[in-house]
Each structure stands twice: as C-alpha cells, then as structure tokens.
Design a protein around this nucleic acid. Structure first.
Length: 222
DNA sequence: CCAGACGTTGTT
DNA sequence: GTCTGG
DNA sequence: CCAGACGTTGTT
DNA sequence: GTCTGG
C-alpha cells in the first residue's frame, strides 16, 4: 500500500517533469500523510492543458452522505478499481497523477514495524496513478479529494511489503490524464509493474511514524 | 420493493 | 450513483 | 500510514 | 478494539 510519501523537488523541476505551466511555490515535504492536501496533476477543467490541484488525500465519492468515508479510502487496488462502486466513476472520468520524490512502506516483523524509504536509484521524481472526486455537503461545502492506486510489490519492494503504489511511465501520462480516453479496460495496460532495478529501498528512523515530523531526517538511511 | 453498503490494510 | 442483501 | 483518543459532569 | 486526526 502507500500511506506516506515525499515531494521535495524544486517547483521548476516539478513543472518540467509534468509539463505544467506556472505553479505556486511548494514547501518541500518529507512526510505527506493521509488527510492532508496533496499536489496532484489533472486535466484542466477549462480543457486541454494540465493543472496542478490540491486534493485532500482520502477519496470522498460525490454521492457520499457521510464524508468520513474518505478517511479510509486512501488507496484503490489497481486490479479492481474499474469495478468497485466507490472508485469506478472516478476511474472513468477523474484520473490524476500524484508527483512524488519517494514513498514509505512499513515492514512488519514479529517485534515491530520498520519504516523503509523507497525512491528511484537516480533520485528522479515520479508520478503515482491517482483518482479524485468532488464532494458537496448539504451546507454547500466542497471537498476535492483523491486516492492513489496500489498494485503487487515488485522485486525491489517484496522484502519490505506486498503492495506498492502504481508508478506511471512518463510516456503514458497523457493517456492516463485524458478523460476522453476509451474504455476503462484500455487503461489497465498502463498500470504495469515498475522496473525494480531502477528503485532502491532502505530502512529509515522512526521519525516518519509521527505525521507531525516533516523534515529531511525522515529519509535519512539508518 | 427498500435498506444499507460502497475500501484497503493487516490480522486472525 | 449503483449494487447487494433481505 | 501511524498516533492518540476513546467520557460525563460541572465549572470557567 | 476501533475511530479520528494528521
């Protein structure tokens, strides 16, 4: 699964990697947690270009009566996302990409849970496949929220955990974001296993466990 | 028909 | 909204 | 994902 | 144990 990640690339790098125009200044993040605003790339509502939107992590379906459901919908299984009532509509019409510098997984041992940090070997940022939705409350309040897709762990992650986020090849960004793009079935091939050789995973300290800790220490190798 | 769930993870 | 269970 | 709360009564 | 908040 994916329950924490980082995004500390300079704004210009982010804009360049995801072909965005002007974007607001972002504070470097070393511990993005569910419930918090996430910078996400999606098709612009005005059509054509991409935009960067801030979506709360934890998807609230538009039809939800109780928005607290969003607290639990931080991940969507890639294997079933096209069929599940909670995600199906978002999968068809509201896909996004969550830029990340890396992410965390917790390895369960008999004694404790050891956090690991995972990033690209060359340090480059990458895009996680996501979905978003827009919810309007009775009182007119609006929440734009998101979830990230997960899939089976590749060889790089397997020793740590059995699931990992779906990392998109940059070559498919356009198709993933294109809301008009064909049937859900045609998107499944985009959700392929990311090459494990390009990734590294290493244990880090327990600082990341506390969501209020958000500094470079989170990703320092043990 | 209406009522109630709609999810993932991990753990048992 | 849409599906499942009763 | 993890951390931290989880309650009522009455008083300020 | 389970829910909420971050």
């Amino acid at each position: 699964m994916c329950g924490r990640f980082t995004l500390f690339e300079p704004d210009k790098m982010l804009a360049k990697s995801f072909d965005l125009g002007e974007i607001p200044r972002l504070a470097p993040r070393y511990n993005v947690a569910p419930g918090q605003p996430v910078a996400a790339v999606r098709a612009s509502s005005s059509g054509g270009a991409r935009e960067l939107a801030f979506l709360r992590w934890g998807l609230i379906p538009s039809w939800a009566k109780d928005p607290s459901i969003g607290g639990r919908l931080i991940n969507a299984r890639a294997e079933t996302v096209g069929e599940k009532p909670v995600f199906r509509n978002a999968f068809r019409r509201r896909r996004c990409i969550v830029p990340a510098s890396g992410f965390y997984e917790w390895q369960r041992t008999e004694r404790r849970k050891q956090p690991y940090y995972i990033r690209m070997r060359d340090g480059r940022m990458f895009g996680i496949a996501g979905l978003w939705d827009r919810w309007e409350g009775e009182d007119g309040s609006v929440a734009e929220t998101c979830a990230v897709l997960t899939t089976a762990a590749n060889a790089a992650l397997a020793p740590v955990h059995d699931r990992m986020p779906v990392i998109l090849d940059p070559g498919v960004y356009d198709r993933w974001l294109d809301i008009a793009a064909g049937a859900p079935g045609s998107l499944q091939p985009l959700l392929v296993l990311f090459p494990p050789d390009e990734m590294v995973a290493f244990p880090v300290g327990f600082g990341v466990n506390d969501p209020s800790v958000d500094d470079e220490g989170c990703i320092a190798p043990l």
